[in-house]
Simulated scan of single mutants.
Amino acid sequence: MTIHRHDRGRHTESPRAARTLPTSRRVLLLVDFINPLNFPGAEDLAASALEAAKATAQLKHRMQERGFRSIFVNDNFGQWRSDFKTLAGECRRLGGAPRGLVGQLKPHPDDLMVLKPRHSAFYATPLDLLLDELGARELVVTGLATDFCVMCTAMDAYVRGYKVWVPEDCTAAETPLQKHEALAWMHAVLKARVSPARQALSR
């Protein structure tokens, strides 16, 4: 069994631990991008979600070239039997923005996937254990929506001692004001970087 603990924001590994996944000190989280957009307010989110997906796809490609892993984290929509393949197929069937999101961010065979029941990618999911297995230190949090699931995920990452980057062009909210206020809060309170995706690998 692999046992880890957080120590002042860093992970200390058990001497007996054996990794089954390649190490990735930096990990890209894609939160709720594979999405049927069938909730109130989705029509206000759709256009900016597609723009965020496009920017995230470019960032994801650059991170893959550097050997960093990506994890898709999605709502289970109340059906724990659901999976990403089924969800992606449903989004393609719906057409419009849901189909466009899948087209921009089709999962790579090496990508990892987690289902979540609530806003945060960490709540009641194995994400923290998975990140420990990867040896992650820094999380790049992208997705929908900036002021809900992205913000909750970034907050939970921060309290667990991860460095947090939220590329401003890789998230979307229903209004520009909601996005701006959420990013400003994450920068001020969580000490998160909120620079654009083109700067996300500069440090």
Rank of each mutant, 00 (worst) to 15 (best):
Trp80Met: 13
Arg81Asn: 08
Phe39Ile: 06
Val31Met: 12
Glu138Thr: 12
Val114Lys: 04
Leu115Asn: 09
Asn38Glu: 09
Phe39Lys: 09
Asp83Asn: 15
Asp75Arg: 00
Ile71Ser: 08
Ser48Asp: 11
Ile71Glu: 06
Arg93Phe: 14
His61Cys: 11
Val141Arg: 01
Pro117Arg: 03
Glu51Met: 10
Pro36Ile: 01
Leu127His: 02
Ala52Thr: 08
Lys116Val: 05
Leu37Gly: 11
Arg25Pro: 06
Pro40Asp: 11
Gln58Met: 15
Phe77Trp: 15
Lys54Ser: 14
Lys54Cys: 12
Asp132His: 13
Pro107Ser: 06
Ile34Thr: 00
Asn76Pro: 08
Asp32Thr: 07
Phe122Cys: 01
His119Thr: 04
Gly103Lys: 00
Asp75Gln: 12
Ala53Trp: 02
Phe68Lys: 07
Glu138Ser: 14
Leu115Val: 01
Gly89Arg: 04
Leu28Lys: 02
Thr86Gln: 11
Arg99Thr: 00
Leu129Asn: 09
Phe72Tyr: 15
Lys54Leu: 14
Leu59Cys: 10
Phe84Pro: 01
Ala136Ile: 05
Asp111Asn: 09
Lys106Tyr: 09
Asp111Leu: 08
Ala46Asp: 00
Lys106Glu: 15
Phe68Cys: 13
Leu45Met: 11
Lys106Met: 12
Gly78Met: 05
Val114Arg: 04
Glu138Lys: 10
